[in-house]
Amino acid sequence: MDERPPQELKDELERLESDYEIFKINLFKEFTKYIIVNSAIAVVLAVILVVIAFKAEDPITEAWEPITVLLVFMSLGPAPLTLGVLSWDANRQLKPMTARAHGLEAAAARAAGTIR
């Protein structure tokens, strides 16, 4: 009995590996975009902190409350938000590849005769 998998299974595995490599490259590109956006927000926050430092002697009025909430959100929001979006998008893209991998695994097991 021939122990090697059929050529069609090898070809499908190579296509799946190629698709996964493309996915990793695209994920890195998306991650880079999010890093740039988060860095821009960090620069804006740094500028705001410098302005606040120069305005430290000014009295605080009630009109500053919405700005304070906005600054807290800008400080805490972008990183988890972008990580969540990136994770959701990656999972969405990986589902078809995972299904293909499971199908390929089952086909290889049938071809090897371990599952009938």
Rank of each mutant, 00 (worst) to 15 (best):
L86G: 04
K95H: 04
E105N: 10
L9Q: 01
V69R: 04
E65D: 04
E21D: 09
I48H: 03
K29H: 13
E30S: 13
W64T: 08
P6T: 12
R100L: 08
A46H: 04
L27T: 06
A42K: 03
T61K: 05
A111L: 01
A56T: 12
G84P: 00
P6V: 15
P78D: 11
F28K: 05
L104P: 00
N91R: 08
F73G: 08
A79K: 01
I67F: 11
A109M: 13
A46D: 00
E17R: 08
A101M: 03
G113N: 07
A46E: 03
E57H: 06
E62C: 03
K10E: 15
V51K: 05
H102S: 10
V69A: 11
P6K: 06
A53S: 07
K95M: 10
L83K: 00
T82S: 09
P6S: 13
D11F: 02
F31W: 08
G113L: 10
K95T: 14
V85A: 07
D2E: 11
I115K: 04
K29P: 01
E65C: 06
A40R: 07
E3H: 07
I41S: 02
G77Q: 08
R100Y: 05
K33N: 12
A112T: 03
I35M: 05
A90H: 01
F54C: 07
A107K: 06
V43T: 12
F54Q: 08
G84W: 09
L70I: 13
G113F: 07
L9R: 00
T61P: 00
G77L: 11
E30M: 09
